[in-house]
Write a protein that binds this DNA or RNA. Structure first.
Length: 470
RNA sequence: CGGGGUGUGGCGCAGCUUGGUAGCGCACCCGCUUUGGGAGCGGGGGGCCGUGGGUUCAAAUCCCGCCACCCCGACCA
């Protein structure tokens, strides 16, 4: 008789499956304050690898890391009208500290536009100071009424980039460059998550931005997740915080700005895009452990063979971990690694060694094969590359199958029950967008007919990608 | 804000109707046997039963208040 499934099957109850994976794969726990989370080592390892890969790309795009404070004077938030209105409901405000009531309340940052701009106004003096490209790795707090671990938590970890440019065109181009070269490139090639890049509608735009661009991914239940955003801020904050520079022609000009961010929400996206009924599936390019070598039983020279194999894999620049917990039943260990989603398992036991082989188990396609000792390193290296691609291809095919072109608002609503719909923006319009909102369906982004990212929502022939979202 | 529900070892629950001071599964600890797909057997540790009051010889159980959390609706995006 089959054992009860380790996880609630996705088809039975997707949200429950998501909670089960997070708990059984030891990714995170809920914190004591509602909406907060404790990120456990395996979950944090995913985030650390994401940070490393994103950070490399941010630096390649010319930005430098800096750090700005957690606490912001409340008055700063109030300087930009749309910004304060957008964030007011989710602010955590400190009014009492050091044993007494504060003269001016302090806001725990929900994002750092205001405090960073207060320093830009000091640092940006001349066109020679531009562009100024900064990035801040930090935690932020947005009080959430309906939290979901990793996807929408009261406190989360992220990076926020903030830049100043001499011209509107430069700022726009940079916001777009981050979207393409930092975010989408990372998501598709490292996370193996295909994304649709597009422009947010006025309704979905960041509070205080002129335009917001986003990367949208489809989860296995057909819902959308905004994986990252990049904003063209125009001169809104520059004017509110007096960020001016002297141009080469001797004029005082307001700087043109951008801001952009990705967060621990990506961990949730990774889980829901690739996970299956056996647990997480981590893409090889991301995983902090690419191959786990299992000592099936410590006898007949198994341990020595494992040590030699690990050295060889290290030499091939593969991230390897040994599982020599021989006191724990084999099946338990195998299930644990599957839940955690490590891409490859190499099982070494006396039976294998007698044949001069090892057993290679691939988590992503779910295959198990016997490979000779001489070929392991080559086989493993090839499997890591193939499975990275397979994961991406699978996710892309799933998204395409679940996305349909429609020409009426009713059909769009129908399609959103199981996936996404593409509908001409001229057909949908703001009225259609409002109507869909009553059914918890939103415009994820606007794209051009050829899939390109629009410069503005006023371009003709735009397509709205609509769906339900997290 | 309105309606409904739930609070009992780390987690999930039973016990409450018909009061007699707590039990099950998983997890944990010890021993032996196991170990190629979630181990078996034996032994063991752990609970102010959300909280404050009341009734009673006696309250997890009955009565009243409070708190927290969950679901549905409304509101907001």
């Amino acid at each position: 008789m089959a054992k009860a499934p380790v996880l609630t099957p996705q088809a039975q109850d997707f949200p429950r499956w998501y909670q089960d994976v997070i708990s059984k794969a030891e990714l995170a726990d809920n914190g004591p304050v509602r909406g907060t989370m404790v990120i456990r080592p395996w979950g944090y390892a995913l985030w650390e690898r994401m940070q490393r890969e994103v950070d490399d790309r941010i630096k390649a795009a010319g930005a430098q890391n800096a750090y700005f404070p957690l606490f912001i004077p409340q008055s700063y938030l109030q300087r930009e009208a749309d910004h304060v209105e957008g964030f007011a409901p989710e602010l955590a405000v400190v009014t009492y500290a050091g044993g007494k009531e504060l003269e001016e309340p302090i806001v725990v940052r929900p994002t750092s536009e205001t405090i960073i701009n207060s320093f830009f106004s000091k640092w940006v003096q001349s066109y020679r100071d531009l562009p100024m490209l900064l990035n801040n790795w930090s935690n932020v707090v947005r009080w959430e009424l309906r939290p979901r671990i990793f996807l929408r938590t009261t406190e989360f970890l992220w990076q926020e980039g903030h830049t100043c440019h001499a011209t509107e065109a430069d700022a726009r181009a940079y916001a777009r460059r981050v979207l393409d070269e930092v975010y989408a490139e990372f998501m598709e090639n490292v996370l193996a998550v295909p994304v649709v890049k597009g422009l947010k509608t006025a309704k979905e735009r960041f509070a205080g931005a002129v335009n917001s661009l986003s990367c949208e991914a489809m989860m296995r239940d057909g819902k959308a997740l905004q994986m990252g955003t990049s904003h063209d801020l125009g001169q809104n904050f520059a004017k509110a915080f007096d960020v001016q520079y002297l141009s080469s022609s001797g004029q005082q000009e307001y700087a043109w700005q951008t801001s952009w961010g990705v967060s621990t929400r990506m961990v949730g996206g990774l889980i829901m895009c690739h996970g299956d009924d056996a647990g997480l599936r981590v893409p090889p390019a991301l995983s902090s452990i690419q191959v786990v070598v299992m000592v099936v039983r410590d006898s007949d020279g198994v341990r020595a063979a494992v040590d030699r194999l690990v050295d060889e894999l290290h030499t091939s620049a593969i991230r390897v971990e040994v599982d020599d917990r021989v006191d724990t039943p084999f099946g338990r260990r195998a299930v644990d690694w599957e839940l955690k989603g490590v891409p490859l398992r190499v099982e070494v036991g006396p039976r294998d060694l007698a044949e001069g082989t090892v057993t290679v188990v691939r988590r992503i396609p779910g295959t198990k094969t016997s490979v000779t000792l001489a070929e392991v390193a080559r086989d493993v290296t090839g499997a890591l590359v193939e499975d990275q691609q397979a994961l991406y291809d699978e996710a892309l095919a799933r998204r395409e199958d679940a996305t349909i072109d429609v020409s009426t608002v009713d059909d769009a609503a129908q399609a959103a029950a199981t996936g996404w719909a593409r509908i001409p923006w001229s057909t949908l319009g703001v009225e259609g967008e409002t109507l869909l909102a009553t059914q918890a369906i939103s415009v994820r982004c606007l794209i051009r007919a050829d899939g390109g990212v629009p410069e503005s929502a006023d371009e003709p022939d735009l397509i709205a990608v609509v769906g339900r979202s997290y």
